[in-house]
């Protein structure tokens, strides 16, 4: 950077740069050479070739005249050129999808969402392996004809050898897939870990004020102190899809919420002990 000369303010030193030059070329373009300082304080010469294009736009005469009207009333002393952000803002995008059956489409979407939820909760029919509860199986009468009672009871008798004794669901042969979930197997790819939450924030606030807009939520868990029930400032939020989780993370990470800055990241599995 240039040295500060005697009697010169340090603030003026940067004005030391050579003034920009404009050269008219033969082909109608212009070459603009300007100088500036880069981050390291070194002088940089910037050469730009510019072609000016005139775009003519036809406007109603009255409209053109009104465009030149000076401002009046509350805007009389306004010095801003163009819209003033205090009175004019651009809102968030809204969607206008025109269609004859939009109402039907909307209800269809809701139904699909509900179906997705059922799929995601890993329900499996023990009769036909379908995506529904055993009791709701459409083949209940044909396939599931089981004269000796429920399958679970029957299988339980074989594996444990002691008829009538209680068998945990995951040990029953018929229900092995259903009950086989444990913490290692649980799919956490759509779960976000949220930290630095204010103590006063509860599950509902997390759900409704923060994460609900980004997609269907599967589960929201706030870590609480075992004795006092007070929030520890950490929560786990699981979405139905990775995309929704990704979107939520991008939008909420680093955002201020109840005077604390949120930290949102994908939940990592606990390292093996």
């Amino acid at each position: 950077m240039a040295e500060v000369a005697k009697g010169q303010s340090w603030a003026d030193v940067e004005d030391d740069l050579p003034s920009p030059q404009v050269i008219d070329n033969k082909d109608g373009t212009k070459t603009v050479i300007s100088y500036r300082l880069n981050e390291a304080g070194k002088k940089i010469k910037l050469t730009q070739k510019v072609r000016e294009i005139k775009v003519t736009e036809k406007v109603n005469k009255g409209v053109a005249q009104r465009r030149k009207w000076s401002k009046f009333g509350d805007e009389k002393d306004s010095t801003t050129i163009g819209p003033d952000f205090r009175t004019t803002q651009v809102g968030t995008a809204v969607e206008l999808v025109l269609g004859t059956s939009w109402r039907g489409e909307e209800s269809k979407k809701e139904e699909e969402k509900k179906l997705d939820v059922v799929k995601a909760t890993n329900v499996k029919c023990r009769t036909c392996d379908g995506n529904h509860f055993t009791s709701k199986c459409p083949f209940k009468d044909t396939l599931g004809a089981d004269p000796e009672g429920s399958g679970a009871h029957d299988d339980g008798g074989e594996s444990a050898g002691a008829p009538g004794a209680y068998i945990a669901p995951h040990l029953r042969a018929g229900g092995s897939k259903l009950g086989g979930r444990n913490f290692e197997e649980r799919d956490d790819s759509t779960t976000l870990r949220v930290t630095q939450l204010n103590e006063m924030v509860d599950e509902d606030m997390i759900r409704e004020e923060l994460f609900a807009p980004f997609g269907m939520l599967r589960r929201v868990t706030l870590v609480r102190d075992r004795e006092t029930g007070q929030s520890k400032g950490t929560a786990y939020v699981a979405y139905e899809t990775v995309e929704a989780a990704q979107k939520a993370m991008e939008n909420l990470d680093g955002r201020g919420y109840h005077s604390l800055i949120l930290r949102v990241e994908f939940s990592k599995p606990r390292p093996a002990r």
């Binding site: 009207w69 009046f72 509350d74 819209p83 003033d84 004019t88």
Partner: peptide, 16 residues
């Protein structure tokens, strides 16, 4: 107060 705006960009022209 009544307001008048340019519809193209939302700039307020003035108030009555």
């Amino acid at each position: 107060v009544a307001s008048v705006w340019y519809s193209s960009n939302g700039e307020r022209l003035g108030t009555f």
